[in-house]
């Protein structure tokens, strides 16, 4: 069964004004438990609106959001507990930091859940570990940190609630390559270690190819494709038409194929292509 599922959801901004815009248009999409899924799409394709529906920040005009088979809008009083079960890290989450120390900021979520002190401390250090925040940073003020470190603190702040579904909107945007890799590795580790369902929004094809088990493609508020990375990146023309394309390394593999050089195996990650080229050269 899907851990979380959107059924025919629609959302329109500014209905009845000249700014009216249909952001999400009849999307049905389920995320399997324990999977790391990706949502990609061009700017303005409705990705961010879609993910803010997952934890009930945004109420769809029509359609349902099912968490563990239950409609999250069935009982409005339970909405707050839905937000603890579906952790959402928003785009550029650095701005949400407010507390005196990093430790206190990460514990904001667990404190809101009403957990005991011991439990909170345990969760904070666990989340800090997943997000790659060193012990020495925990007692600093979040405002002294660098941009990349702030991002990790914000991610840890949501992980500390131990959500069964973790949604991250562009978690790696604007970070340097090393920062990207380490934050995405931490997210993958969280997914594997806790068995949580993780959903990442990104428009980096490379990140999608490396990290995601399943990929959904949105365009103009509609779901265009949903499948494994092999299924998605095989549709090179369609993706190009949506302004998305495939990972650069996959493009190289396709160009080599056009020249008559067939690369077997994984043509979606640099490691995969490198190893098949090495094999070809050895022959």
């Amino acid at each position: 069964m899907d851990a979380i599922r959107l059924e025919n959801v629609t959302y329109t901004y500014g209905a009845g004004t000249p700014f009216e815009k249909r952001a999400v248009d009849g999307v049905t999409l389920g995320f399997e438990k324990g999977m790391l899924s990706g949502i990609m799409g061009h700017t303005g394709s409705g990705k961010s609106t879609l993910v803010s529906m997952l934890n009930g920040l945004c109420r769809p005009d029509s359609g349902r959001v099912l968490l563990g088979g239950e409609d999250i809008w069935a009982d409005k009083k339970k909405l707050r507990s839905v937000r603890f079960r579906v952790g959402l890290v928003m785009q550029y989450p650095e701005y949400q930091l407010f507390d005196e120390t990093v430790r206190a900021d990460i514990s904001f979520g667990p404190r809101n859940m009403g957990l005991e002190k011991g439990e909170i401390a345990e969760r904070v250090s666990e989340a800090a570990r997943f997000a790659g925040i060193g012990e020495e940073l925990l007692d600093k003020s979040p405002f002294e940190l660098s941009g990349g470190q702030k991002r990790r603190v914000a991610v840890a702040g949501v992980m500390a609630m131990r959500p069964e579904v973790l949604v991250l909107d562009e978690p790696a945007a604007g970070l340097d390559p090393a920062g990207r890799e380490s934050i995405l590795n931490g997210i993958r580790e969280y997914c594997r270690a806790t068995g949580a369902t993780v959903i990442i929004v990104s428009h980096s094809m490379e990140d999608m190819a490396v990290y995601c088990d399943r990929i959904a493609v949105l365009a103009e508020g509609k779901l265009c494709m949903y499948g494994t990375r092999e299924e998605i990146f095989a549709e090179r023309q369609t993706l190009a038409g949506l302004g998305l394309g495939v990972p650069m390394i996959t493009d190289i593999a396709y160009e080599l194929r056009a020249l008559g050089i067939e690369l077997g195996g994984d043509i979606y990650t640099v490691e995969g292509v490198a190893s098949s080229i090495r094999k070809l050269l050895a022959r």
Partner: peptide, 16 residues
């Protein structure tokens, strides 16, 4: 817009 965004981010962490 920013107030909206920050409120949403804190709501996502269970702020009431």
């Amino acid at each position: 817009e920013e107030t909206d965004k920050i409120m949403n981010a804190q709501k996502a962490r269970g702020a009431d």
